[in-house]
């Protein structure tokens, strides 16, 4: 591990000012990803600014019905929150499918959004990786790519966002609030993570030095009829091969509205807008579900190793929507 400075931030403005002065510094929240990456020399921050003492906790229902989740709320607490469980079971289930109990007790909402890909090349600093070392190449494209992207990848990077929580938040149209030296700002989940393009070193559109302060989940009338399913190589403590976050509003067998986001298929949680559009107003039947997700996956460009994700996502989406259609 490269030596680094450590300091504890007393307030948000001070933390942001520190990163403004020292662009190689990083915020430390739960540390469940960053500290691992420092040990592996994937991340070599000059300084860690510990934000755990900042007042960024709390889960609050606002006047308009939105739920505001503090950036420092631990994944375990968010998953167990009665409001979340009742209004957005998809979010609670996504959180509980992730990592292990110990990691969920440490991991924060803000940090979880920023977790980095688990591509084996990114994690191994003895190997090329355009995300870790721009211009060094992407061995995954012809190498070990079974878990990597099938949608929106580029010739420079086929990494995936590995998380679960962000997939649910994407389905829920959540908004990420953050603070920079210029003041408070926000990004919708749909624009928070980005595709790799020709600059895979950037995972998100968050401005440099920004500190996530909260995540706002807008009200969703049919949010109670939502769920998350994750396919993985073992029953616990494994990243997704593919996951589906979905919510469905059905009346008399006809879909009034719905949300579908797919995880572990792209550099960002993949909102299935094509499928949603096809299904809105259509009968809630398995053949319609299947046709819609097939249309969504038309643009998929898998490698030989991850081509299985196309039938996997197809079957998962059909199964999840059918489950929501027949509660």
């Amino acid at each position: 591990m490269k030596p680094f400075e450590y300091e504890r931030a007393d307030d948000v403005a001070g933390a942001v000012a520190t990163l403004e002065r020292d662009p190689d510094a990083k915020y430390l929240a739960g540390g469940t990803n960053l500290v691992d990456l420092m040990r592996l020399r994937v991340e070599t921050p000059s300084r860690l600014v510990d934000v755990n003492r900042l007042d960024l906790g709390g889960i609050v229902v606002e006047a308009d019905g939105a739920v505001r989740i503090g950036a420092a709320v631990r994944n375990s607490d968010l998953a167990a929150d009665p409001v979340i469980r009742e209004r957005y079971p998809v979010l609670s289930r996504a959180l509980l499918s992730a990592a292990s109990g110990q990691l969920r007790n440490m991991a924060s909402v803000g940090g979880n959004l920023l977790q980095r890909t688990r591509c084996v090349y990114f994690m191994d600093s003895s190997k090329p990786c355009n995300k870790r070392e721009p211009g060094s190449g992407c061995p995954a494209i012809v190498g070990v790519s079974r878990e990597l992207a099938i949608l929106g990848a580029s010739e420079h990077c086929i990494a995936t966002h590995p998380g679960d929580m962000a997939v649910a938040l994407t389905a829920l149209d959540a908004i990420v609030h953050f603070e920079t030296a210029a003041g408070p700002d926000s990004l919708p989940m749909s624009g928070f993570h980005r595709l790799p393009g020709d600059d895979p070193s950037r995972d998100t559109n968050l401005p440099p030095g920004a500190l996530i302060t909260s995540v706002e989940v807008p009200p969703l009338s049919f949010g109670g009829r939502s769920t998350y399913r994750k396919a993985r190589d073992r029953r616990s403590y494994a990243f997704a091969l593919a996951s589906v976050a979905a919510a469905l509003d059905v009346e008399d067998g006809i879909i009034r509205d719905l949300r579908i986001a797919v995880g572990a298929v792209s550099h960002k949680p993949w909102r299935a807008t094509v499928a949603e559009e096809l299904l809105r107003g259509s009968p809630a039947t398995p053949d319609r579900f299947e046709a819609a997700i097939r249309a969504e996956l038309d643009i998929a460009r898998p490698t030989e190793q991850n081509a299985f994700k196309i039938p996997l996502v197809t079957r998962l989406v059909v199964g999840v929507l059918d489950e929501l259609a027949h509660p």
Partner: peptide, 16 residues
Amino acid sequence: YANHDFATYHIPACAD
């Protein structure tokens, strides 16, 4: 062998 840690080389977890 590219997967050389317990996050990527899977052995059964208690849930399995």
